[in-house]
Simulated assay, not measured.
Amino acid sequence: MTRSLLILNGPNLNLLGTRQPEVYGTTTLKDVENLCLDKAKDLGIEIEFAQSNHEGSLIDMMHAARGKHVGVILNAGAYTHTSVALMDAISSIMLPVIELHLSNIHAREAFRQTSYISKVCIGQICGFGAAGYPLAMQALIDYVGDKA
């Protein structure tokens, strides 16, 4: 298997750059993808970068990651706080998953401080904006080490 990561973005992340720039900044999802592609070159890995506003599509993409990727970086957006189905999918794929958020969810509204997926992820990166993506990539590659 090629050393490859799935970087998966959930609902409303397609609107990055224009959606609540005071919270999420002005970096677009395409800018984030380009950051990830640059980091992938540095790490000598491949990435698949995807976004969906649909919970089932996110789950399907996570299922398809088995046997194809060594791990997943998941910015589940609002599904972080509501989706038992995503939590179950993470548990089922038998791949390490890092939970990622652009904003610091622990400093926001009370409902955003609860994550259904954190208990089944290997770690969480939040509050660093787009810079969190390359951090997560490095962390995931370091975590899998020679296992991949």
Rank of each mutant, 00 (worst) to 15 (best):
V144Y: 05
P96F: 03
Y116S: 11
L13K: 07
I122P: 07
G129F: 10
A107C: 11
M1W: 02
Q20T: 12
A76E: 01
R112W: 10
A78D: 02
T26L: 07
D142Q: 13
G10A: 09
N12Q: 08
R112I: 08
E99I: 09
S92M: 14
I93H: 02
M62K: 03
E55F: 06
S4Y: 00
I141W: 00
L37Q: 15
C121F: 08
A136R: 07
Q51D: 04
G77Q: 01
S92C: 14
K41W: 06
V97M: 08
F49C: 04
C126G: 09
G10C: 08
S103K: 07
M137N: 03
R19S: 06
G67C: 06
C121D: 07
V72P: 00
N12C: 06
P21Y: 02
I45M: 02
P11A: 06
E99C: 08
R66D: 00
V32M: 07
S4E: 05
Q124A: 09
A85S: 14
T2A: 11
D146A: 14
T80Q: 04
S57T: 15
G17T: 09
H63M: 10
T18Y: 02
Q124S: 13
L74H: 05
L135F: 08
I90P: 03
K39A: 05
H81Q: 12
T114Y: 14
I141H: 01
E33N: 12
I7F: 06
S4F: 00
A131D: 15
A148K: 11
P21S: 03
D142L: 09
N9R: 07
I73V: 08
T27W: 02
E22H: 14
G56K: 05
G56C: 04
G17V: 10
Q113V: 13
M137I: 10
L15Q: 04
V23C: 12
I7D: 00
L6V: 02
S52I: 01
Q113W: 12
V84G: 01
L16K: 05
A110W: 11
N53E: 08
M61I: 00
E22M: 10
H54T: 06
K39E: 11
I7K: 06
G67P: 07
K41D: 10
M87K: 15
Y79R: 06
S115P: 11
L6K: 00
C126D: 06
R108V: 09
A65C: 01
Y79M: 08
M1D: 04
G127V: 05
Q124C: 13
Q20H: 13
R66T: 01
P21D: 04
D142F: 10
E48R: 12
A64Y: 00
R66V: 04
L43S: 12
H69A: 14
G10F: 04
V23F: 10
A85V: 09
A65K: 00
F111K: 09
H81L: 06
C36I: 08
L29W: 13
D31P: 12
S52Q: 02
C126K: 05
P21W: 04
A136I: 07
K147Q: 13
E46S: 15
F111M: 11
A85I: 10
T26M: 08
G67S: 07
N104V: 09
S52P: 01
Y116C: 09
T114I: 12
A50V: 02
T28S: 15
D38V: 12
R3G: 01
I98Y: 04
T2F: 05
G71D: 00
F49E: 01
L74C: 07
D42L: 15
G25P: 13
I117D: 01
A107V: 06
